[in-house]
Design a protein around this nucleic acid. Structure first.
Length: 460
RNA sequence: GGCGCGAUGGCCGAGUGGCUAGGCAGCGGUCUGCAAAACCGUUUACACCGGUUCAAUUCCGGUUCGUGCCUCCA
Protein backbone atom coordinates (compact mmCIF):
# COMPACT_ATOMS: atom_id res chain seq x y z
CA UNK A 1 0.00 0.00 0.00
CA UNK A 2 1.26 3.43 -0.92
CA UNK A 3 -0.01 6.81 0.23
CA UNK A 4 0.76 10.44 -0.52
CA UNK A 5 2.87 12.03 2.20
CA UNK A 6 2.31 15.77 2.54
CA UNK A 7 5.75 16.13 4.11
CA UNK A 8 7.69 14.69 1.16
CA UNK A 9 5.00 15.49 -1.41
CA UNK A 10 5.47 12.01 -2.76
CA UNK A 11 3.87 8.62 -2.75
CA UNK A 12 5.44 6.39 -0.14
CA UNK A 13 4.89 2.78 0.95
CA UNK A 14 3.19 2.21 4.30
CA UNK A 15 5.75 0.51 6.51
CA UNK A 16 4.99 0.71 10.23
CA UNK A 17 7.77 1.71 12.61
CA UNK A 18 6.99 -1.37 14.69
CA UNK A 19 5.89 -4.70 13.25
CA UNK A 20 2.40 -4.73 11.72
CA UNK A 21 0.96 -2.06 14.01
CA UNK A 22 0.14 1.31 12.50
CA UNK A 23 -0.15 4.10 15.03
CA UNK A 24 -2.51 6.75 13.72
CA UNK A 25 -3.41 10.18 15.05
CA UNK A 26 -6.44 11.91 13.57
CA UNK A 27 -7.24 15.50 14.46
CA UNK A 28 -10.71 15.55 15.96
CA UNK A 29 -13.43 18.15 16.51
CA UNK A 30 -13.57 21.26 18.60
CA UNK A 31 -16.75 20.62 20.54
CA UNK A 32 -18.41 24.03 20.42
CA UNK A 33 -21.19 23.24 17.92
CA UNK A 34 -22.54 20.41 15.77
CA UNK A 35 -19.95 19.20 13.28
CA UNK A 36 -20.79 19.91 9.62
CA UNK A 37 -20.57 17.58 6.64
CA UNK A 38 -17.20 19.05 5.70
CA UNK A 39 -15.80 17.88 9.02
CA UNK A 40 -17.31 14.48 8.39
CA UNK A 41 -15.72 14.27 4.98
CA UNK A 42 -12.40 14.21 6.81
CA UNK A 43 -13.57 11.72 9.41
CA UNK A 44 -14.93 9.41 6.71
CA UNK A 45 -11.60 9.60 4.90
CA UNK A 46 -9.81 8.67 8.13
CA UNK A 47 -12.26 5.84 8.64
CA UNK A 48 -11.54 4.52 5.14
CA UNK A 49 -7.82 4.69 5.88
CA UNK A 50 -8.23 2.87 9.16
CA UNK A 51 -10.48 0.18 7.72
CA UNK A 52 -8.29 -0.40 4.68
CA UNK A 53 -5.16 -0.68 6.81
CA UNK A 54 -6.92 -3.44 8.72
CA UNK A 55 -8.11 -5.09 5.50
CA UNK A 56 -4.46 -5.09 4.39
CA UNK A 57 -3.41 -7.00 7.47
CA UNK A 58 -2.18 -4.17 9.66
CA UNK A 59 -3.25 -3.61 13.21
CA UNK A 60 -4.32 -0.06 13.96
CA UNK A 61 -4.13 2.07 17.07
CA UNK A 62 -6.02 5.25 16.35
CA UNK A 63 -6.29 8.34 18.51
CA UNK A 64 -8.78 11.13 17.86
CA UNK A 65 -8.60 14.11 20.16
CA UNK A 66 -11.50 16.25 21.36
CA UNK A 67 -10.62 19.90 21.72
CA UNK A 68 -12.78 20.99 24.63
CA UNK A 69 -10.94 24.11 25.71
CA UNK A 70 -10.14 26.99 23.35
CA UNK A 71 -11.45 30.48 22.56
CA UNK A 72 -14.66 29.20 20.99
CA UNK A 73 -15.65 26.73 23.70
CA UNK A 74 -14.90 29.28 26.40
CA UNK A 75 -16.85 31.99 24.61
CA UNK A 76 -19.78 29.63 24.12
CA UNK A 77 -19.90 28.53 27.71
CA UNK A 78 -19.74 32.13 28.97
CA UNK A 79 -22.54 33.19 26.65
CA UNK A 80 -24.64 30.23 27.75
CA UNK A 81 -23.80 30.94 31.38
CA UNK A 82 -22.76 27.38 32.11
CA UNK A 83 -19.50 25.68 33.01
CA UNK A 84 -17.12 24.65 30.25
CA UNK A 85 -17.83 20.96 30.86
CA UNK A 86 -21.58 21.49 30.85
CA UNK A 87 -21.26 23.40 27.59
CA UNK A 88 -19.11 20.88 25.71
CA UNK A 89 -20.72 17.67 26.99
CA UNK A 90 -23.76 17.72 24.66
CA UNK A 91 -21.57 18.47 21.64
CA UNK A 92 -19.33 15.56 22.52
CA UNK A 93 -22.35 13.31 22.80
CA UNK A 94 -23.74 14.58 19.49
CA UNK A 95 -20.39 13.98 17.81
CA UNK A 96 -20.35 10.32 18.81
CA UNK A 97 -23.95 9.90 17.67
CA UNK A 98 -23.04 11.36 14.30
CA UNK A 99 -20.05 9.02 13.95
CA UNK A 100 -22.41 6.14 14.54
CA UNK A 101 -24.91 7.38 11.96
CA UNK A 102 -22.09 7.49 9.42
CA UNK A 103 -20.91 4.02 10.41
CA UNK A 104 -17.48 5.35 11.33
CA UNK A 105 -15.54 2.80 13.36
CA UNK A 106 -14.58 3.99 16.83
CA UNK A 107 -10.97 4.93 17.43
CA UNK A 108 -9.08 3.25 20.26
CA UNK A 109 -8.74 6.53 22.20
CA UNK A 110 -10.68 9.79 22.30
CA UNK A 111 -8.64 11.93 24.68
CA UNK A 112 -10.06 15.31 25.69
CA UNK A 113 -7.70 18.22 26.15
CA UNK A 114 -9.05 19.08 29.59
CA UNK A 115 -8.12 15.60 30.84
CA UNK A 116 -4.49 16.02 29.78
CA UNK A 117 -3.37 19.30 31.27
CA UNK A 118 -0.62 17.52 33.20
CA UNK A 119 0.85 16.09 29.98
CA UNK A 120 0.69 19.51 28.37
CA UNK A 121 2.56 21.11 31.28
CA UNK A 122 5.23 18.41 31.20
CA UNK A 123 5.75 18.95 27.49
CA UNK A 124 6.08 22.70 27.90
CA UNK A 125 8.60 22.16 30.69
CA UNK A 126 10.69 20.03 28.38
CA UNK A 127 10.60 22.79 25.77
CA UNK A 128 11.57 25.38 28.39
CA UNK A 129 14.46 23.17 29.53
CA UNK A 130 15.72 22.94 25.98
CA UNK A 131 15.50 26.69 25.48
CA UNK A 132 12.82 26.55 22.78
CA UNK A 133 10.13 28.33 24.75
CA UNK A 134 10.00 31.53 26.76
CA UNK A 135 7.61 33.27 29.12
CA UNK A 136 6.12 36.69 28.67
CA UNK A 137 5.40 39.22 31.41
CA UNK A 138 1.78 38.17 31.77
CA UNK A 139 2.67 34.53 32.40
CA UNK A 140 2.03 33.13 28.91
CA UNK A 141 4.52 30.75 27.32
CA UNK A 142 5.45 30.95 23.65
CA UNK A 143 7.33 28.66 21.32
CA UNK A 144 10.23 30.37 19.61
CA UNK A 145 10.20 29.40 15.97
CA UNK A 146 13.53 31.12 15.38
CA UNK A 147 15.18 28.49 17.59
CA UNK A 148 13.69 25.55 15.72
CA UNK A 149 15.45 25.00 12.40
CA UNK A 150 13.17 23.91 9.61
CA UNK A 151 10.02 25.47 11.03
CA UNK A 152 7.31 25.44 8.37
CA UNK A 153 8.63 22.44 6.46
CA UNK A 154 5.28 20.68 6.28
CA UNK A 155 3.42 23.63 4.81
CA UNK A 156 6.51 24.69 2.85
CA UNK A 157 6.21 28.09 4.38
CA UNK A 158 9.20 30.34 4.05
CA UNK A 159 9.01 32.45 7.20
CA UNK A 160 11.13 35.19 5.63
CA UNK A 161 8.48 35.63 2.95
CA UNK A 162 5.54 35.96 5.30
CA UNK A 163 3.77 39.23 5.18
CA UNK A 164 3.27 40.84 8.55
CA UNK A 165 -0.41 40.84 7.77
CA UNK A 166 -3.63 42.11 9.18
CA UNK A 167 -4.45 38.73 10.69
CA UNK A 168 -1.80 38.98 13.37
CA UNK A 169 -3.54 40.09 16.53
CA UNK A 170 -2.63 43.52 17.79
CA UNK A 171 -2.31 42.58 21.42
CA UNK A 172 0.38 39.98 20.94
CA UNK A 173 3.22 42.47 21.31
CA UNK A 174 4.84 40.37 23.99
CA UNK A 175 6.05 37.77 21.52
CA UNK A 176 9.64 37.84 20.31
CA UNK A 177 8.47 37.05 16.79
CA UNK A 178 5.00 37.58 15.36
CA UNK A 179 4.89 33.97 14.23
CA UNK A 180 5.67 32.52 17.66
CA UNK A 181 2.66 30.65 18.98
CA UNK A 182 1.26 30.21 22.45
CA UNK A 183 1.96 27.01 24.37
CA UNK A 184 0.31 28.30 27.52
CA UNK A 185 -2.09 31.21 27.69
CA UNK A 186 -2.17 33.23 30.90
CA UNK A 187 -5.63 33.63 32.39
CA UNK A 188 -7.56 36.78 31.57
CA UNK A 189 -11.00 37.99 32.49
CA UNK A 190 -12.62 36.54 29.37
CA UNK A 191 -11.66 33.05 30.55
CA UNK A 192 -13.99 33.21 33.56
CA UNK A 193 -13.33 30.24 35.80
CA UNK A 194 -11.53 28.24 33.10
CA UNK A 195 -7.96 27.97 34.38
CA UNK A 196 -5.41 25.47 35.64
CA UNK A 197 -2.36 25.98 37.83
CA UNK A 198 1.01 25.75 36.13
CA UNK A 199 4.63 26.65 36.91
CA UNK A 200 3.96 29.89 35.01
CA UNK A 201 0.79 30.77 36.86
CA UNK A 202 -2.92 30.23 36.19
CA UNK A 203 -3.88 29.72 32.58
CA UNK A 204 -4.83 27.22 29.88
CA UNK A 205 -3.08 25.32 27.10
CA UNK A 206 -2.59 26.71 23.61
CA UNK A 207 -4.33 24.84 20.83
CA UNK A 208 -1.46 23.14 19.06
CA UNK A 209 0.19 21.76 22.16
CA UNK A 210 -2.66 19.44 23.16
CA UNK A 211 -2.21 17.35 20.03
CA UNK A 212 1.50 16.89 20.70
CA UNK A 213 0.95 16.02 24.35
CA UNK A 214 -1.88 13.56 23.71
CA UNK A 215 -0.39 11.87 20.68
CA UNK A 216 2.82 11.20 22.63
CA UNK A 217 0.87 9.91 25.58
CA UNK A 218 -1.04 7.33 23.54
CA UNK A 219 1.21 6.66 20.55
CA UNK A 220 4.73 7.40 21.73
CA UNK A 221 7.19 10.09 20.71
CA UNK A 222 7.40 8.85 17.11
CA UNK A 223 4.47 7.30 15.27
CA UNK A 224 3.32 6.38 11.79
CA UNK A 225 0.53 8.49 10.36
CA UNK A 226 -1.06 11.80 11.28
CA UNK A 227 -4.08 13.10 9.39
CA UNK A 228 -6.35 16.11 9.18
CA UNK A 229 -7.91 18.57 6.77
CA UNK A 230 -5.65 20.53 4.43
CA UNK A 231 -6.31 23.71 6.37
CA UNK A 232 -4.46 22.20 9.30
CA UNK A 233 -1.19 21.77 7.45
CA UNK A 234 -0.08 25.22 8.39
CA UNK A 235 0.20 26.31 11.08
CA UNK A 236 -1.35 23.60 13.23
CA UNK A 237 0.60 20.58 12.06
CA UNK A 238 3.83 22.48 11.54
CA UNK A 239 3.50 23.70 15.10
CA UNK A 240 2.97 20.16 16.31
CA UNK A 241 6.16 19.11 14.55
CA UNK A 242 8.08 22.00 16.09
CA UNK A 243 6.84 21.30 19.62
CA UNK A 244 7.23 17.57 19.48
CA UNK A 245 10.56 17.31 17.74
CA UNK A 246 11.80 20.28 19.74
CA UNK A 247 10.98 18.48 22.98
CA UNK A 248 12.12 14.96 22.09
CA UNK A 249 14.80 15.48 19.47
CA UNK A 250 13.18 12.60 17.55
CA UNK A 251 11.17 12.53 14.33
CA UNK A 252 7.54 13.08 15.30
CA UNK A 253 5.48 11.61 12.46
CA UNK A 254 6.52 9.53 9.50
CA UNK A 255 3.59 10.19 7.17
CA UNK A 256 1.22 13.14 7.04
CA UNK A 257 -2.04 12.75 5.13
CA UNK A 258 -4.50 15.57 4.47
CA UNK A 259 -7.96 15.55 2.98
CA UNK A 260 -9.18 18.26 0.63
CA UNK A 261 -12.21 20.33 1.53
CA UNK A 262 -15.78 19.72 0.65
CA UNK A 263 -17.67 22.40 -1.23
CA UNK A 264 -21.43 22.67 -1.56
CA UNK A 265 -23.13 23.43 -4.88
CA UNK A 266 -19.73 24.43 -6.23
CA UNK A 267 -19.10 27.01 -3.53
CA UNK A 268 -17.31 27.11 -0.25
CA UNK A 269 -19.67 26.14 2.53
CA UNK A 270 -20.65 29.11 4.62
CA UNK A 271 -23.52 30.16 6.78
CA UNK A 272 -24.03 33.37 4.83
CA UNK A 273 -24.52 31.48 1.55
CA UNK A 274 -27.06 29.22 3.19
CA UNK A 275 -25.22 26.10 2.05
CA UNK A 276 -23.86 25.17 5.45
CA UNK A 277 -25.09 21.72 6.43
CA UNK A 278 -24.70 19.65 9.55
CA UNK A 279 -25.35 15.93 9.30
CA UNK A 280 -28.68 16.52 11.01
CA UNK A 281 -29.67 19.10 8.39
CA UNK A 282 -29.15 16.56 5.64
CA UNK A 283 -31.00 13.84 7.51
CA UNK A 284 -33.88 16.19 8.15
CA UNK A 285 -34.35 16.25 4.38
CA UNK A 286 -35.06 12.55 4.45
CA UNK A 287 -31.66 11.05 3.74
CA UNK A 288 -29.95 8.53 5.96
CA UNK A 289 -26.41 8.28 7.27
CA UNK A 290 -25.58 5.50 4.88
CA UNK A 291 -26.41 7.67 1.86
CA UNK A 292 -24.40 10.57 3.20
CA UNK A 293 -21.48 8.26 3.95
CA UNK A 294 -21.55 7.04 0.37
CA UNK A 295 -21.35 10.58 -0.99
CA UNK A 296 -18.48 11.50 1.32
CA UNK A 297 -16.66 8.24 0.62
CA UNK A 298 -16.98 8.00 -3.14
CA UNK A 299 -14.57 10.75 -4.15
CA UNK A 300 -10.82 10.60 -3.69
CA UNK A 301 -9.80 12.24 -0.42
CA UNK A 302 -7.25 14.64 -1.93
CA UNK A 303 -9.77 15.96 -4.44
CA UNK A 304 -12.20 18.61 -3.36
CA UNK A 305 -15.67 17.11 -3.24
CA UNK A 306 -18.74 18.90 -4.50
CA UNK A 307 -21.65 18.06 -2.22
CA UNK A 308 -25.11 18.46 -3.75
CA UNK A 309 -28.46 16.95 -2.94
CA UNK A 310 -28.47 15.59 -6.45
CA UNK A 311 -25.36 13.62 -5.45
CA UNK A 312 -27.18 12.23 -2.41
CA UNK A 313 -30.03 11.15 -4.70
CA UNK A 314 -27.53 9.47 -7.00
CA UNK A 315 -25.97 7.75 -3.99
CA UNK A 316 -29.38 6.41 -3.05
CA UNK A 317 -29.92 4.94 -6.52
CA UNK A 318 -26.42 3.48 -6.62
CA UNK A 319 -26.90 1.79 -3.28
CA UNK A 320 -30.31 0.48 -4.35
CA UNK A 321 -28.61 -1.16 -7.31
CA UNK A 322 -26.15 -2.95 -5.05
CA UNK A 323 -28.91 -3.89 -2.60
CA UNK A 324 -30.95 -5.40 -5.42
CA UNK A 325 -27.98 -7.43 -6.57
CA UNK A 326 -27.33 -8.75 -3.08
CA UNK A 327 -31.00 -9.63 -2.79
CA UNK A 328 -30.81 -11.65 -5.97
CA UNK A 329 -27.72 -13.45 -4.70
CA UNK A 330 -29.54 -14.42 -1.53
CA UNK A 331 -32.31 -15.97 -3.66
CA UNK A 332 -29.94 -17.68 -6.05
CA UNK A 333 -29.89 -21.49 -6.08
CA UNK A 334 -26.91 -23.22 -4.56
CA UNK A 335 -24.64 -24.14 -7.44
CA UNK A 336 -20.84 -24.13 -7.66
CA UNK A 337 -18.52 -23.87 -4.71
CA UNK A 338 -16.13 -21.21 -5.93
CA UNK A 339 -16.07 -17.58 -6.98
CA UNK A 340 -16.71 -16.67 -10.63
CA UNK A 341 -13.96 -14.94 -12.59
CA UNK A 342 -15.72 -11.59 -12.46
CA UNK A 343 -15.70 -11.73 -8.65
CA UNK A 344 -12.02 -12.62 -8.53
CA UNK A 345 -11.36 -9.72 -10.83
CA UNK A 346 -13.35 -7.34 -8.63
CA UNK A 347 -11.30 -8.47 -5.66
CA UNK A 348 -8.07 -7.70 -7.52
CA UNK A 349 -9.31 -4.30 -8.67
CA UNK A 350 -10.48 -3.49 -5.16
CA UNK A 351 -7.07 -4.20 -3.71
CA UNK A 352 -4.87 -2.64 -6.39
CA UNK A 353 -7.00 0.51 -6.43
CA UNK A 354 -7.08 1.11 -2.70
CA UNK A 355 -3.41 0.17 -2.42
CA UNK A 356 -2.66 3.24 -4.50
CA UNK A 357 -3.44 6.09 -2.12
CA UNK A 358 -7.00 4.88 -1.47
CA UNK A 359 -8.36 5.19 -5.00
CA UNK A 360 -11.92 4.59 -3.94
CA UNK A 361 -13.57 5.59 -7.23
CA UNK A 362 -11.78 2.85 -9.09
CA UNK A 363 -12.53 0.34 -6.34
CA UNK A 364 -16.23 1.18 -6.53
CA UNK A 365 -16.18 0.97 -10.31
CA UNK A 366 -14.80 -2.56 -9.89
CA UNK A 367 -17.73 -3.44 -7.66
CA UNK A 368 -20.26 -2.08 -10.14
CA UNK A 369 -18.67 -4.08 -12.90
CA UNK A 370 -19.08 -7.10 -10.71
CA UNK A 371 -22.75 -6.28 -10.17
CA UNK A 372 -23.15 -5.97 -13.91
CA UNK A 373 -21.49 -9.31 -14.68
CA UNK A 374 -23.33 -11.05 -11.86
CA UNK A 375 -26.72 -9.80 -13.01
CA UNK A 376 -25.99 -10.95 -16.51
CA UNK A 377 -25.24 -14.46 -15.29
CA UNK A 378 -28.31 -14.48 -13.09
CA UNK A 379 -30.55 -13.36 -15.96
CA UNK A 380 -29.12 -16.02 -18.22
CA UNK A 381 -29.48 -18.67 -15.52
CA UNK A 382 -25.77 -19.24 -15.93
CA UNK A 383 -25.05 -19.95 -12.29
CA UNK A 384 -22.07 -22.23 -11.95
CA UNK A 385 -20.60 -20.31 -9.06
CA UNK A 386 -21.34 -19.95 -5.37
CA UNK A 387 -23.67 -17.05 -4.61
CA UNK A 388 -22.88 -17.31 -0.92
CA UNK A 389 -19.20 -16.86 -1.66
CA UNK A 390 -19.93 -13.78 -3.74
CA UNK A 391 -21.95 -12.43 -0.82
CA UNK A 392 -19.05 -13.23 1.51
CA UNK A 393 -16.71 -11.30 -0.78
CA UNK A 394 -19.05 -8.29 -0.72
CA UNK A 395 -19.13 -8.55 3.06
CA UNK A 396 -15.35 -8.40 3.11
CA UNK A 397 -15.42 -5.35 0.84
CA UNK A 398 -17.87 -3.85 3.28
CA UNK A 399 -15.44 -4.15 6.18
CA UNK A 400 -13.65 -1.36 4.29
CA UNK A 401 -16.54 0.55 2.73
CA UNK A 402 -19.13 0.34 5.49
CA UNK A 403 -22.00 1.13 3.11
CA UNK A 404 -23.13 -2.15 1.57
CA UNK A 405 -25.35 -3.36 4.37
CA UNK A 406 -28.79 -1.82 4.10
CA UNK A 407 -30.38 -0.66 7.34
CA UNK A 408 -32.91 -3.12 8.73
CA UNK A 409 -36.44 -2.40 7.56
CA UNK A 410 -38.96 -1.76 10.28
CA UNK A 411 -42.22 -2.13 8.41
CA UNK A 412 -45.04 -0.18 10.07
CA UNK A 413 -48.18 -2.07 10.98
CA UNK A 414 -50.34 -0.11 8.51
CA UNK A 415 -48.02 -0.90 5.63
CA UNK A 416 -47.85 -4.56 6.64
CA UNK A 417 -51.65 -4.72 6.54
CA UNK A 418 -51.73 -3.23 3.04
CA UNK A 419 -49.04 -5.65 1.94
CA UNK A 420 -51.09 -8.62 3.06
CA UNK A 421 -54.26 -7.23 1.48
CA UNK A 422 -52.42 -6.62 -1.76
CA UNK A 423 -51.12 -10.19 -1.85
CA UNK A 424 -54.72 -11.40 -1.60
CA UNK A 425 -55.91 -8.97 -4.28
CA UNK A 426 -53.14 -10.13 -6.59
CA UNK A 427 -53.97 -13.77 -6.03
CA UNK A 428 -57.54 -12.94 -7.11
CA UNK A 429 -56.21 -10.88 -10.06
CA UNK A 430 -57.98 -7.77 -8.75
CA UNK A 431 -55.58 -5.39 -10.45
CA UNK A 432 -57.42 -2.18 -9.60
CA UNK A 433 -57.30 -2.98 -5.91
CA UNK A 434 -53.70 -4.10 -6.20
CA UNK A 435 -52.69 -0.80 -7.84
CA UNK A 436 -54.64 1.22 -5.32
CA UNK A 437 -52.75 -0.44 -2.47
CA UNK A 438 -49.43 0.08 -4.24
CA UNK A 439 -50.18 3.80 -4.57
CA UNK A 440 -51.20 3.99 -0.92
CA UNK A 441 -47.98 2.37 0.21
CA UNK A 442 -46.03 4.70 -2.04
CA UNK A 443 -47.75 7.66 -0.44
CA UNK A 444 -46.64 6.27 2.91
CA UNK A 445 -43.04 6.22 1.68
CA UNK A 446 -42.72 2.58 0.66
CA UNK A 447 -42.07 1.32 -2.85
CA UNK A 448 -43.36 -2.11 -3.65
CA UNK A 449 -42.42 -4.22 -6.61
CA UNK A 450 -43.52 -7.67 -7.69
CA UNK A 451 -41.05 -10.44 -8.22
CA UNK A 452 -41.36 -14.17 -8.85
CA UNK A 453 -40.79 -14.59 -5.10
CA UNK A 454 -43.60 -12.20 -4.21
CA UNK A 455 -43.76 -8.54 -3.23
CA UNK A 456 -40.61 -6.64 -2.26
CA UNK A 457 -40.69 -3.51 -0.15
CA UNK A 458 -38.18 -0.67 -0.27
CA UNK A 459 -38.17 2.34 1.99
CA UNK A 460 -37.87 5.62 0.19
C1' G B 1 2.97 39.06 -3.41
C1' G B 2 4.60 33.65 -1.72
C1' C B 3 3.40 28.29 -1.84
C1' G B 4 -0.25 24.81 -3.90
C1' C B 5 -4.52 22.42 -6.41
C1' G B 6 -7.95 21.97 -10.28
C1' A B 7 -10.86 22.49 -15.34
C1' U B 8 -13.31 15.33 -18.29
C1' G B 9 -20.01 14.04 -21.58
C1' G B 10 -26.93 16.70 -18.69
C1' C B 11 -24.90 15.88 -13.26
C1' C B 12 -21.15 13.39 -10.05
C1' G B 13 -16.49 11.38 -10.71
C1' A B 14 -11.76 7.81 -12.21
C1' G B 15 -7.87 7.19 -15.55
C1' U B 16 -4.39 6.77 -19.52
C1' G B 17 1.06 8.63 -24.84
C1' G B 18 -2.51 4.55 -29.10
C1' C B 19 -7.17 0.11 -26.33
C1' U B 20 -15.49 1.20 -23.40
C1' A B 21 -13.67 3.76 -16.24
C1' G B 22 -17.85 3.67 -13.11
C1' G B 23 -22.42 5.79 -10.97
C1' C B 24 -26.85 8.87 -11.65
C1' A B 25 -30.13 10.89 -15.25
C1' G B 26 -32.08 10.25 -20.69
C1' C B 27 -33.70 7.24 -24.98
C1' G B 28 -35.05 2.31 -27.48
C1' G B 29 -35.92 -2.90 -26.48
C1' U B 30 -36.72 -7.71 -23.37
C1' C B 31 -39.54 -9.05 -19.06
C1' U B 32 -44.36 -7.66 -16.27
C1' G B 33 -51.82 -7.68 -15.73
C1' C B 34 -49.65 -2.48 -15.47
C1' A B 35 -45.43 -1.00 -13.04
C1' A B 36 -40.82 -1.54 -10.54
C1' A B 37 -36.27 -4.01 -10.46
C1' A B 38 -32.91 -6.44 -13.64
C1' C B 39 -30.71 -7.26 -18.34
C1' C B 40 -29.40 -5.80 -23.59
C1' G B 41 -28.51 -1.69 -26.87
C1' U B 42 -27.68 3.54 -27.19
C1' U B 43 -26.72 9.47 -27.17
C1' U B 44 -23.54 13.64 -24.98
C1' A B 45 -16.09 14.18 -23.15
C1' C B 46 -11.50 15.41 -22.00
C1' A B 47 -11.37 24.68 -20.85
C1' C B 48 -8.50 27.61 -24.78
C1' C B 49 -3.83 28.51 -27.80
C1' G B 50 0.81 26.70 -29.19
C1' G B 51 4.88 22.87 -28.88
C1' U B 52 7.11 17.71 -28.56
C1' U B 53 5.59 12.96 -30.97
C1' C B 54 4.04 8.33 -36.02
C1' A B 55 0.14 9.35 -32.29
C1' A B 56 -1.78 14.14 -26.89
C1' U B 57 -7.58 14.17 -22.97
C1' U B 58 -2.70 12.28 -21.04
C1' C B 59 3.98 15.25 -21.62
C1' C B 60 5.91 20.69 -22.04
C1' G B 61 4.93 26.17 -22.36
C1' G B 62 1.37 30.01 -22.33
C1' U B 63 -3.84 31.96 -21.68
C1' U B 64 -8.54 32.06 -19.28
C1' C B 65 -11.51 30.63 -15.32
C1' G B 66 -12.17 28.45 -10.51
C1' U B 67 -10.15 27.25 -5.83
C1' G B 68 -6.97 26.29 -1.08
C1' C B 69 -3.27 27.94 2.54
C1' C B 70 -0.05 32.22 4.06
C1' U B 71 -0.85 32.43 12.44
C1' C B 72 -5.66 28.72 16.30
C1' C B 73 -10.95 27.07 9.81
C1' A B 74 -11.87 19.38 8.65
Amino acid sequence: MRVYNTLSRQMEPVVPIEGRRVRLYTCGPTVYNAAHIGNFRTYVFEDLLRRYLKYSGFEVTQVMNLTDVDDKTIRGSRQAGVSLDAYTAPFKRMFFEDLKLLNIEPAEHYPAATDHIAEVITLIERLMARGLAYTSDDGSVYFSIARFPGYGKLGHIDMAGLRAGARVAQDEYEKENVADFALWKAWDADDGDVAWDSPWGRGRPGWHVECSAMSMRYLGESFDIHTGGVDNIFPHHDDEIAQSEGATGKPFVKTWMHSAHLIVDGKKMSKSLGNFHTLRDVMARGYNGREVRYVLLAAHYRQSLNFTFEAVEAARSSLARIDAFMDRLKQAPAAGSSLPDWALQAETVFKTSLDEDLNISEALAGIFEMVHAGNRDLDAGRIVWSASQVLALLARFDTVLGVLTPPALAIPEAVQVMLTARAAARAAKQWTESDRLRDAMQAAGWDVRDTPEGQKLTKR
